[in-house]
Nucleic acid binder design. Structure first.
Length: 389
DNA sequence: GCGACCGGGGTCTGCCATCCCC
DNA sequence: GGGGATGGCAGACCCCGGTCGC
């Protein structure tokens, strides 16, 4: 047993120092094969080097990962094949990320959640990092995204594709600030194949042209900058949503175009079923409150984000507002009040009730203000109660 | 000074299915 | 057949402040 432990320790040492130092331009597989076979042969008293069994996990790799604080159970669950590989670069990866400012905890978490990260060579990592640094000012920003979404950085081994994506998105007129926001918010966009991103952009341009728009390129750019998740959705999903909106609201081409190149861009990526469910639920509720279908259309066109709110949340918000003395007509005229959290709405209604605020006389705009402005208003109302009635 | 209107910013991954290559 | 690469899906808001007109 002691001998085995010694070999593992030696193997780990070799893996972490000798081997990784030269990982750069040499394919990971070749480098590790040599070392592993050499060690195995030295401990089995056999002249025939034996490769590790194909279907079993690499013991020294498991040991290394455990020492690094990796959740091996999670890694096994996510990508079991990686643990069976004889040739990996976990120490090289760790060293690389440490050099970029990642903590031990972050590195372990990254590998636990996306084990394939340890199959990337140093050369690949350096290239990819440099490409990301074209968009971010500091290494720290990239580390925080890796911590959040390791898959976005490590899933693709094609740096050329990443380069193409950056060039393509830049060619759309997206500036460095837009790219920064895009990569921060929806990093998966940059791991998409260039072709997939191009298809979505072309799809958006086609939609604009079909609806009679005069500037498809501008339209696509607008939609992307307004909805940063659009490029990680399928064209099928977006198309279905557009069809749902058109049919449900009975929109003309120009009305639909205006909606999509306005606030409607933000709901184009919702799941199709969710969008339908929320629309039906909203319509049902509004009709039951005596609204006409035209009112539903008016509300959605002026505030499409109402379809983003889950049915239960929306129902609760409406209940709060209605029982607080606000009418449905007021909500339709001023739907942005639904933008605020239920907690915020209930809190403000309570405050306003306390000072005797009259919504019929003063309207409901007070609910759509920043907390600072709201507090200042409450203070004034408290000092001069006659203003409320 | 105040209210109304409006735009913008933060946040948003982990998993499964499929295809393809070795 | 195994594993890598990639496509696609579900999940489901909140808040702030600039500007302008009165």
């Amino acid at each position: 047993m002691a001998a085995v432990a010694g070999v593992r320790a030696l193997l780990g040492f070799h893996r972490s120092v000798t081997l990784q130092r030269s990982f750069g331009n040499i394919p990971a597989q070749l480098t590790s094969t040599f070392l592993l076979r050499g060690l195995c042969s030295a401990t089995t008293k056999s002249n025939e080097p034996k490769p590790p069994p194909v279907a079993t996990e690499n013991e020294s790799l498991l040991e290394n990962l455990n020492l690094m604080g990796v959740d091996v159970k999670m890694a096994r669950q996510r990508q079991p094949g990686v643990l069976r590989k004889a040739f990996t670069n976990e120490q090289g990866l760790a060293k690389f990320l440490q050099g970029k400012g990642a903590s031990r905890r972050v590195i372990a978490s990254i590998i636990s959640r996306y084990p394939r990260a340890i199959t990337r060579s140093i050369e690949h990592l350096e290239q990819r990092w440099d490409l990301w640094r074209d968009i971010f000012k500091t290494d720290g920003e990239i580390v925080s995204i890796l911590d959040r979404s390791p898959e976005s950085f490590f899933r693709s081994s094609d740096n050329g594709n990443l380069q193409k994506n950056i060039a393509f998105l830049t060619s759309l007129g997206l500036n460095s600030k837009d790219l920064n926001r895009l990569l921060t918010t929806a990093p998966r966009t940059f791991s998409n194949s260039f072709e997939l991103n191009r298809q979505m952009v072309e799809f958006l341009e086609d939609i604009c042209a079909e609806l009679g728009g005069t500037n498809p390129e501008q339209f696509a750019k607008y939609v992307i900058s307004r909805n940063l998740y659009i490029l990680i959705r399928s064209t099928k999903r977006v198309k279905t949503n557009i069809d749902i909106l058109r049919a449900s609201l009975k929109l003309s081409d120009s009305e639909l175009l205006a909606l999509l190149q306005g606030p409607g861009a933000e709901i184009m990526d919702l799941s199709n079923e969710y969008l339908k469910k929320n629309f039906n639920s909203l319509q049902q509720r509004m009709v039951s409150l005596g609204c006409r279908k035209a009112d539903v259309k008016k509300l959605i066109i002026s505030y499409p984000m109402v379809l983003y709110i889950g049915t239960d949340t929306l129902s609760f918000k409406l209940d709060c507002l209605l029982t607080g003395g606000i009418t449905m007509k007021q909500i339709i005229e001023k739907p942005k009040v639904l933008d605020y959290s239920t907690q915020n709405i209930t809190g403000r209604l309570g405050e306003l009730q306390r000072v005797g605020y009259d919504f019929q006389k003063n309207g409901i705009n007070i609910l759509d203000t920043s907390q600072k402005r709201f507090d200042a208003k409450i203070e004034r109302l408290g000092a001069s109660p006659e203003l409320n009635v």
